[in-house]
Design a protein around this nucleic acid. Structure first.
Lengths: 255, 255
DNA sequence: CGGCATGTTGAATCTAATCAATCCACGTGG
DNA sequence: CCACGTGGATTGATTAGATTCAACATGCCG
C-alpha cells in the first residue's frame, strides 16, 4: 500500500476532477501546488463534529471515512461512505458550520486543504470551481438515491442496492476489480447506513448468501450473481454518472 | 394572487440569492435581464421526468412543486418540496440527465431559464456562480436531514420534524406567518415524503392533533405548541441556514 | 490464554403496512 | 335543489417486517 506524502497527496483529487472533465496543464499544476496538511486518523476516530466550524476541507487519501449524524439514545445514521479521492466535507467551503460529523471507519489518511486556498483556486480557474461544484452534486445524487431506498425499499432490496452501488463506485475510482470490492465496515456500520439494526442486517446478509448473490468475508464483498442482484433492487446506475468509465473502460485502468 | 409576468419573474430568485449574500447592482440587473419562459402547470402534472435530458432549469414562481422517484408497484418517494423562489432542478446545469422527476403538487407557475444563459451569467459573475452552488448545497443539507429521519426517526418524530422544517423554510421565504404555513398536500403526498403509508400518516396526524401540537385544515398547518413540537423531534435548525432570518421569528426562539 | 469486539441465532414484541370499509366535503349535472 | 360521483380522510382488523432482548459463537490481539 503506497504511503501518501505531501508530494503526491493531491493526485487522487486530480484524478477525480479529470474524471469529470480533463484538466488543462495550468489547472493541473495549480492543483499540484495546493498546500495540504496530511494527517493519519485511527479507526473509529472523529475527524470533525456536527456544529464545528470548518476552515479547511478534508480529502480522503487512504481508508474509509463516513459522514454520520446522531440522535438521542445512541441512534446513528451514516449518511455516506467515502474512499480515496473523495471530498466528504467539500460543502463546508460555502457552509462552514457542519451539519454532520465525519469519522474514520478504518485507519485512514486524510489531507486537509484550507478553504482559503480552495477559494483562490476557484477564483482563478472557473473550470476547477465548476468541477468542485460538480463533486458536491454527485454527492447529492447519491444522497437522493439513499433516501429513496430508506423510504421505499425493504431491507433486502436496500442492501442489494448498496451492494450494487459500492463496487461500481469503487471500481470507477480504480479501487476495486470488477464484481468485487473492499467493504471494511462492521454489520453495525452497515445497519447505521441502511437504517436497520445490526441483527436484521445479519439476517438479510444470511438471506443474500443463501440466494448465492454475494459473499462477504475478510472485509471483501464479492458479487456472485450480478444480473440477479441488479434485478432484485431494480438498480439503475444513472445517478452515479459513471458514463464511459463504468465497465472495462481504459479511463479506469489508466488510474 | 399576483400573476407572474416576464417582467418580474426573476424577483423570487433575486430574493433568494440576496438572502445568501447581498448582490451588487450589476449582478442584480444581469439577473433581471435573464431570458425566461413562463409556464403554468396543472396540479399533479409532471414538469420533467427521470431520464430526461434538461437544457434549462425550472424556477418556481407560484404553487408547490416536488421532486420524486418511482419504483415498481406504484411505490413513490418524494425527495423534496419546493415553493416560490426555489430552483428544484438547478443541479441539471451540470448534470443534465435527470435522476428524478419533477411534478406540480398544486396548480403552479414556473419559469424556465436556459442552461446557456445561466452559464454565461456564472462565467461573468463569480459571485452568482457561488450563490447558485450555495443553493444546491442547501438542498443537499435538507436531503441529509430527511435521510436521517427516514433511517432513524420513528413516524411521529419524523412528521414532527417536517412540521418544524416547513414553517421555518416558508417563513424565511416570506411565504408564511410565524407558527403557521400553507401545506397544500394530501396525506398520500405526506406519506410519500415521509416514507410511510397514507393510512399511517392519518393515524400519526390524529395523534399529533390529540396532543394539541398542531392543527391541519384547509390546507394550512398551524403549530399550536412550538416548544413541544421542537422537543419531540429534537429539532435543530442549523441545517436550514436561516441565520439572521430565524431571529426575526419569535415563535422559534420562544421554543 | 483471556478478553473484547463482532457476528449469529432464537423468541417475543412492536411499529407500520396491508386490506377493506366507511365517511365526508365538494362539485356537477339532471 | 338534490342525487350522484369522486378524491381524500378516517377507522378497524389483520399481517408482515423489523426491533428488542438475550444468549451464545467466533475470531483476533495482547
Amino acid at each position: 500500500m503506497p504511503r501518501a506524502t505531501d508530494l503526491h497527496a493531491v493526485t487522487p483529487l486530480i484524478r477525480k476532477l479529470e474524471a469529470i472533465n480533463s484538466l488543462s496543464h495550468e489547472e493541473r499544476s495549480a492543483l499540484q501546488s495546493l498546500p495540504v496538511k496530511i494527517r493519519a486518523v485511527g479507526a473509529r476516530q472523529d475527524i470533525l463534529r456536527e456544529g464545528d466550524k470548518a476552515s479547511q476541507c478534508c480529502l480522503v487519501l487512504e481508508g474509509w471515512i463516513c459522514r454520520y449524524r446522531m440522535l438521542s439514545e445512541g441512534r446513528r445514521q451514516i449518511l455516506s461512505f467515502h474512499v480515496t479521492g473523495d471530498f466528504p466535507d467539500l460543502q463546508s467551503l460555502h457552509m462552514p458550520v457542519m451539519d454532520y460529523s465525519l469519522a474514520a471507519i478504518t485507519n485512514a489518511v486524510v489531507a486537509f486543504i484550507s478553504h482559503e486556498s480552495l477559494r483562490e483556486l476557484s477564483e482563478e480557474f472557473a473550470g476547477i470551481c465548476t468541477r468542485l461544484w460538480h463533486i458536491t452534486l454527485l454527492d447529492a445524487a447519491i444522497c437522493r438515491e439513499w433516501m429513496l431506498g430508506m423510504g421505499r425499499r425493504p431491507a433486502y432490496e436496500r442492501m442489494a442496492h448498496l451492494f450494487c452501488e459500492l463496487p461500481l463506485k469503487l471500481r470507477a475510482a480504480g479501487l476495486a476489480e470488477a464484481g468485487r470490492c473492499p467493504l471494511p465496515v462492521t454489520q453495525a456500520d452497515l445497519a447505521d447506513a441502511l437504517g436497520l439494526t445490526s441483527v436484521h442486517v445479519n439476517r438479510v446478509l444470511k438471506g443474500m448468501r443463501n440466494q448465492g448473490l454475494i459473499t462477504l468475508q475478510s472485509r471483501t464483498l464479492t458479487i456472485e450473481r450480478w444480473d440477479e442482484l441488479l434485478r432484485v433492487c431494480q438498480f439503475n446506475p444513472t445517478y452515479l454518472r459513471l458514463e464511459n468509465r463504468t465497465a472495462a473502460s481504459p479511463a479506469v485502468r489508466r488510474g
